[in-house]
Nucleic acid binder design. Structure first.
Lengths: 197, 197, 197, 197
DNA sequence: CATGAATGAGTCTTCATTCAT
DNA sequence: GATGAATGAAGACTCATTCAT
């Protein structure tokens, strides 16, 4: 039920994972515990479903952004990817943060892995289409880039980031990824030349 | 007690945070619950102590490496920092992974924040001393770099990293940071020239 | 739940406050601990509720008796008050005795204070209406009288009273209060005379 | 040991009976738990000893006062008894209050009973020697009087007494007892006349 | 004799899950 | 299908008591 999803996120953000009990979720959703168990076999399944939905939303947003950048210059890709990822994760920071706690539970890792894999494919595909450079190993580059973005987002969500960095995060990460992408890339012209040899 | 520290890490890695109860820790340590409470006022304090010890170890390792790189070229700094951080975190991967769960607990964030701050200072100081380039804003650069390293390490520890990336992680991150550091830097010669004008 | 009230009193009388645990109460009530906590937020709340019910019963009985004595001679008031209070407290001696232990707990004092205050008002109002005498300070006199009654009842309940006294308690206390009330009173006629001067 | 007595009372008054643990008592006394158990077989024995000492002090004070009033008029006896009892109980109110909690424990009732019996004898003996009146049944009268005093003292210690009453307690109780004693008494002259008939 | 670390039974309290209505 | 009272296992924590040093 939709109400259960929303209620779970509310309880999660307002009370934390430890106090996110089935009774509280049901009460917040205006339903009974019994009803909750008609939609989900147990508490973990509900939490997993909520996490999965959030993750697929982020994946979709990243995928959309990557498709839109097909054939663009690599620097623009870096900026667009950063912007899309930050927007998806920071649109509702409390929710994102709360769900990281859920992800740490047994079973959460698999969902995260799936979402990451999907995003890596999207990013790698985008990188391979760059107009100006040829990325040697798009999958590897995409994965490292994604981990970098995730690292900063977690730091921000967990309150570990200084105001200075937080204020310019998008710029910093855009620059970082641009520099990184170019390190692993070979200019198209040179690549063509190489191929001709 | 030392046995309690070890037991906590064992239970944490083998059973997870949720099943890491005072009873189980005590049993694993070959002690009684009562004894546990003679050394720590409550469960959270024990977990915090274990986390704090690990974090200070990592901080110290990073600090040591940064001091050793004073005055070196920036590319070498990037590689040395990466190597030191990965070595410290991956020396005992199970322990590191288990403690990430603890860090998410109430109180864990403060310890992490403290350790991060300490490492940012070490890294920033090192960057400021680079022989070849002048880093514009060492503190910000250091913080972004640290978050990047953390992001990859978490991905690795949580099993989210592909074998391809894992195999070349140190190289990848070294290159990434080198590129990033140079983005934010101005060649010493140019900087001196600017200063003279 | 009614069964929890009854069970609490039974455990209290048979095992004492120290052994009056939530588990034992629940078992005696034929319920589970969980059920207990669906009716009361914690152990103290249950004990307080049991005490409060008893106290309000005593208060009500005293109030009823006092109202019935409005306008009667003071000696009759003393006897009626004594009779009503003893009847209320000694109707179920085990329960009364057990609850004195509860009253000593944190939070019990407030309930007792409230009940005492209510009874003092009832008694004072009665005293002020005495047909034959004018009580100078009804509130003070009522309070001292109540403490006197309580003192004897506690002695009786705690087994500190000799059989001789116990056998004639009502008579003794009636006489004591009659004598005390008259000490603090002025005959109506004299009072009127004084007022006319 | 003397220090243990003092420490017990301090912990009792400052932390309450529930937090009056053997460890805390020993620490307060500057001793070890082990030492405590060399003087007392268990916690209850220590508490009982502390209570017993306090009670015998009160008994002795009352006895002393009663002996001093031998052969005096009954009104003076009432006042002296009241004064002595209040002084003994209210000299250290916190201690007295804390010990009432101890008295409610298993075993405390017997000690109280013993002290009460002793005081009843002292008071009865005094009453029998009154110069002006002949008390019909000194033991019964003494017991009722004592319970009355105890009732007010408990009310005062437990904070149940209004400031108005507390301010004039000694006067009120003196008057009450005087009135009560005279109710149960026959003037010496009349008594002698009766005896001659 | 003194010490105080170790013990572990016993408390209160929570919460996922069930099932009679 | 919905409900929510009942369950009871499990967790954190306390403390009287013991005993090796």
């Amino acid at each position: 039920m939709e109400a259960l999803h929303a209620a779970t996120i509310q309880v999660l953000t307002q009370q934390g994972l430890a106090r996110c009990t089935t009774t509280r979720i049901a009460a917040r959703a205006g339903a009974s515990v019994g009803s909750l168990y008609q939609y989900y076999p147990n508490r973990d399944a509900l939490l997993a479903a909520v996490l999965a939905r959030k993750l697929s939303g982020v994946s979709a947003a990243v995928d959309l952004a990557c498709r839109a950048q097909q054939g663009q210059p690599i620097a623009q890709m870096a900026v667009a990817l950063t912007r899309a990822f930050l927007a998806a994760k920071l649109h509702n920071p409390d929710e994102s943060k709360a769900l990281y706690a859920v992800a740490a539970q047994r079973g959460g890792a698999a969902l995260i892995a799936q979402a990451q894999a999907s995003m890596v494919v999207s990013i790698a595909t985008m990188l391979a289409s760059a107009a100006d450079v040829h990325v040697a190993n798009p999958a590897v580059t995409a994965e490292v880039a994604l981990n970098t973005l995730v690292g900063s987002v977690r730091a921000l969500l967990e309150g570990l980031m200084s105001p200075e960095v937080a204020a310019t995060l998008e710029t910093q990460l855009g620059a970082l990824l641009t520099a990184y992408f170019q390190t692993h890339a070979v200019a198209r012209a040179a690549a063509s030349a190489l191929a001709r040899e």
